[in-house]
Design a binder for these strands. Sequence first.
DNA 1: AGCACGCCGACT
DNA 2: GTCGGCGTGCTC
Length: 639
Amino acid sequence: MLKSIMEFVDVLFPINLGPLTYKCPTHLTSRALPGMLVSAPLKTQITKGIILGKPSNPEAKGIKTISDIHGESPLLEPPLLKLLNWMADYYIIANKGLVLKNMLPQETFKKVKARSKGKTEEDKESNEIVEIDENILSKIKESLSKREYKTFLVHAPSPLYESAMITKILPQGKSAIILVPEIVHISHTLPFIKEIAGERLCVLHSGLSKGQRSEAMEKIISGQCNVVLGTRMAVFAPLKNVSLISVMHEHNSSYRTEEGLRFNARDIAVMRGYIEKSAVVLSSICPSIESVYNSKRNKYTLIRPDVYSQRPKIRILNMRNERQPAPNLSKTVINEALSSIRKNEKIMFVINRKGYSMLTCKECGSTETCGKCSIPLMFYKGDKSLRCHYCGAIAGSPEKCRRCGSFSLEPTGSGIERMEENIKKVFDIEPLRIDSNMLKRKRIPEDLSDITEGKSIILGTKLLTKRLHSSEKLGMAAVLNADSYLNQPDFRSAERTFHEMYGITDKIKPGGSLFIQTRMPQNYTFRHLKNHDYASFCDEELEKRKEMLYPPFSKLALITFNGRDCDAVRTEKAIREILSGNKALEVLGPSVTPTKKGEKEYSLLFKAASKKNLHFSVKRFLELLGSYKCLNVKVAIDP
DNA sequence: AGCACGCCGACT
DNA sequence: GTCGGCGTGCTC
């Protein structure tokens, strides 16, 4: 006799595993709908999971029976199930269970103890007012009322504009998701949304305690709250009928996950919007190159408010010509800094390098490098150590050169520790130093002026420029080693440099200046930065990406693997096979790098003309590679 | 032989 | 994630 299809269902657990087929007892079949939360025996215990849908393997032997079905309506509505399936496919080696684990916090599947209280975001009154021309947002409103999918790219004139815009477009009574890249951004955005959403608003991010998070999830599932403000996890908030998804500071790389399932919440937001038929609003002062390109191809609708906002001057200093009274400090920067200090203004120096300096031998000219990674080691003056910034190796500083044995090792280049010394010498002022060591010891302050303690010079690594916000604006700022940003071996380095430098201008008074010290002032990034001309920068950057066939003109996948069965010969063989007859595919590597544990890690970059080709090639390559075990393979799509 | 420990693969 | 199976190596 044929088994009734409804007797069996596929269940997905929040673990790195595909769906498993279970029998459904007759008294539960009426509620056995896709997306329902269920309890089912897995190995020796009862585990919670969700029903994915029709049975994929009803003939499997040893099928067990579902223990219970929880609730009356699905935890994951059809759109989120669709998104889950899409993600498992798009990110290639993602088991559906792993996607599920990333979609819902673990409290959903495990009991939580008494609801613990933690700190909640404080409402801070925003004293700055932004004028917004509502007409310019009429296209978004129109789209919202029609309930159609459309993605808008708002090239905002200021960060404040992005927040204020929300109050104009948030639809009354309808559900919405508002994403910010980092937890610190939540308190800046919250007052604006609270003003319009009130009790309908709930906050969702990884800084919440388990209790708070399950409380938030409860409010979302029950429908008590239908506006969710949060970090990338909020893109999966189980809201019904999402009408608006806003991604603020959309260019920000914090939307990417670095570990586990690698995804970009901005891309997920667009796909969820497409599935849910909602309006997606990506906004940024400097939108990502991909988004700009999508707006040029009319995939996104570009909105560019014509609002005048007075911005600080950006001045590019050619360090080849500049007189440098101290290393990394040009005469111009010193003079401008002194005049700011005289006016009682705060100033900031940014140096993108930790430690004191590198050590170079005067005799043979060799620089001390890491034995494993062969990159220059950094000398730390405090504990007289030599450290590798890549693998983290720490050694005592040597007395003599490892190459020639001479005792004349001298510091070359300047890290933050050495800059601190230089600044003390030049200005006779103790700067306030902010780097990752300091942030580990103290909490990250909400406001920079809370910790300046009357100090006028702030010196920090780029952490400072990203994390810290200040109510008191700076008189001037200087990026001391701008070239170290640009010289990163990454096709996004120019874009990132523009974003980072431009981001600093938000912290400077109108009428103040940002100084950029560089040895390549003619570089197009600096040329356009000087004119605040992001559009021209994008045009030129897109030209270059097109020439080099980098995204958005190609699709990339980064494949890494390690383990005892790594084999260079077989890897090469698999590469040769995958390349044969596929002209639209390019494979860069393999490059072998040591991991932090000391074993070898292979990495390969697949570059294909189309997404389809990339997927096909990566899957085929993994099959070829999969014939031998003990490989720990990871695939990052759009790395 | 007896057992502790760690790694690996399967889980319906 | 979490369990059992199995190999390694140490101890009685």
